[in-house]
């Protein structure tokens, strides 16, 4: 993410907060509003960030991923059903990761091994995820009257979570905390580790990586599946951290907003996180403004991430460069 775009994002977030601050009702303190907006923003940003990180590992290795939505949706279902069956939330999260990674394995098999067009492969996964989870939620969850296992309890930062105004920010649930850790972890993995270097090499110039003795296929499989597992955590967020139920189509297009965040963030973990925060902040503003009786053009809020992404892609606010080999199957020889 370029410095200019980073400042642009900061300015946007500042403007969002300022907008609420100036228009809020007199009996709620500014600090409360700011803290509340921040809390809401972090909450909305969690699945977006996870989705964007999932897409990042995938695309950094040169495999386009428009199937974040499908991976998250199927993981949301898998996490829910396993948690419900085992009555273990931890098992549910693991199941979410396994399901996400399994969908990713399908994506990798199709696009890396069989060299199916990566967009087509992503489309297959999205359609399949919607159909299979819808079908199973009717035929299994409904028929067997399966009840959810509840939600992951919040983890409180000892002293800080008891503070009056900002307290809620420091009592997030595990996946929200894990997301922050994953942003840092993903940055470290991608830019500081051997595997990260190889993933990036494979995504930029696969023949160079191949010539250096790296298996392009294995690296892509691994990266896509790591991404899938992260998408799986994002899916588990919906059914184990946000609400204790699974609903068909409950990811509600967030996988595509995550894709937008990934692009807006220039395919970097920090950038994707900041972009997710920005998009989440727009939603938080939408909610907060209504709370204070300010009419908001909802459709404009709804368009915000998508318009911004097109603008960025068109190069109007700095330019983003995708990994050079994204979308191209690697054919050795």
């Amino acid at each position: 993410m370029t410095r200019g775009r980073f400042l642009f994002v900061l300015a946007c977030i500042g403007a969002l907060v300022a907008a609420v601050e100036t228009l809020r009702s007199p009996d709620v303190s500014a600090a409360v509003v700011a803290a509340s907006m921040l809390a809401t923003t972090l909450r909305f940003a969690t699945p977006l960030t996870l989705g964007a990180l999932a897409g990042m590992f995938c695309e950094r290795s040169g495999v386009a991923n428009i199937a974040i939505e499908g991976m998250m949706l199927s993981a949301a279902f898998g996490a829910f059903i396993v948690a419900a069956m085992t009555r273990s939330l931890a098992a549910g999260v693991v199941a979410g990761m396994v399901v996400g990674a399994t969908m990713a394995l399908l994506h990798a098999w199709l696009s890396v091994t069989l060299r199916v067009d990566q967009i087509v492969s992503g489309t297959v996964i999205n359609i399949m995820a919607a159909g299979v989870t819808g079908f199973l939620s009717t035929e299994v969850v409904r028929r067997k009257a399966i009840e959810g296992a509840g939600l992951l309890p919040a983890w409180r930062v000892p002293v800080l979570s008891d503070l009056p105004v900002v307290g809620p920010i420091f009592q997030q649930q595990p996946i929200a905390w894990a997301t922050l850790a994953l942003v840092i972890g993903a940055h470290f993995v991608l830019f500081r580790t051997v595997w990260g270097l190889r993933v990036r090499a494979v995504g930029e110039l696969p023949r160079a990586a191949h010539a250096a003795g790296i298996s392009v296929q294995q690296t892509r499989y691994a990266a896509v599946m790591v991404g899938g597992a992260i998408a799986g955590i994002g899916g588990a967020y919906f059914t184990l951290e946000a609400v204790p139920v699974f609903e068909p189509m409950m990811t509600n297009g967030r996988g595509f907003i995550a894709l937008a965040a990934l692009i807006f963030g220039g395919w970097t973990p920090a950038g994707a996180w900041v972009a997710s925060l920005l998009f989440a902040a727009a939603n938080a503003l939408h909610i907060n403004a209504q709370q204070f009786g300010i009419p908001v053009p909802s459709q404009i809020v709804g368009m915000f991430p998508y318009v911004l992404t097109i603008v960025i892609l068109a190069g109007a606010i700095g330019r983003v460069t995708p990994p050079a080999a994204v979308g191209q199957p690697y054919v050795p020889d």
Binding site: L197, R200, A201, E204, L205, R207, A208, A209, H210, A211, A212, A324
Partner: peptide, 10 residues
């Protein structure tokens, strides 16, 4: 190689 196997942004 004739076509260098170097990753340009690295």
């Amino acid at each position: 190689h004739q076509h260098f196997m170097l990753v340009p942004p690295f």
